[in-house]
């Protein structure tokens, strides 16, 4: 498989269920998306995103509950702000901000999951693999 890897952090309560729905419904989504279940999208520290890049990911997709639906009330708002700020910092590192995407997928939204995942895969395919200098 030559597609660049996309690490996807999925919130336990909504988006992971949404991905599960997509699977159950046999919807197609790209095989280069590697799901990691987290308790909340707000758990995703920017350090985890950078670690994913350092370990070879070319894109990071963070999916949480829709605004207002967070199981912990406000975790998704924090991730929204955090990743916006990270995207700005990434541009200063010469990394395309589009390599980090935050979106919302509810537990019942299998189709939405497949759509967001496919769009992200397309974005990363266009950008090509992320080649960090100094891989040591």
């Amino acid at each position: 498989m030559n597609e660049p890897t996309i690490v996807s952090f999925l919130c336990n309560w909504c988006s992971y269920e949404g991905a599960d729905k997509a699977g159950n419904a046999r919807l197609e989504y790209p095989a280069n998306i590697r799901p990691i279940r987290v308790m909340c999208s707000g758990r995703v520290d920017t350090e985890l995103v950078l670690q994913a890049f350092r370990e070879g990911a070319s894109g990071v997709l963070i999916l949480g509950c829709h605004p207002g639906d967070c199981h912990y009330k406000k975790g998704n708002y924090k991730t929204r702000r955090r990743m916006l700020l990270l995207r700005k910092a990434l541009a200063q590192f010469g990394v395309e901000p589009e390599r980090v995407k935050v979106d919302w997928v509810a537990a019942g939204e299998g189709e939405r999951f497949a759509k967001v995942a496919n769009e992200m895969a397309e974005t990363i395919r266009e950008l090509g693999p992320l080649r960090l200098p100094l891989s040591g």
Binding site: T46, E47, Q51, P67, Y77, R80, R81, L85, L86
Partner: peptide, 30 residues
Amino acid sequence: ARDQGARSLSFVASLLGIEEEEKMTDEEVE
């Protein structure tokens, strides 16, 4: 902590606009 900058960025973004966070549009967050 593996990356001090990332940790700092995370905590600052978390505090920023926390009072009104549910009401903010994407543009306001930007």
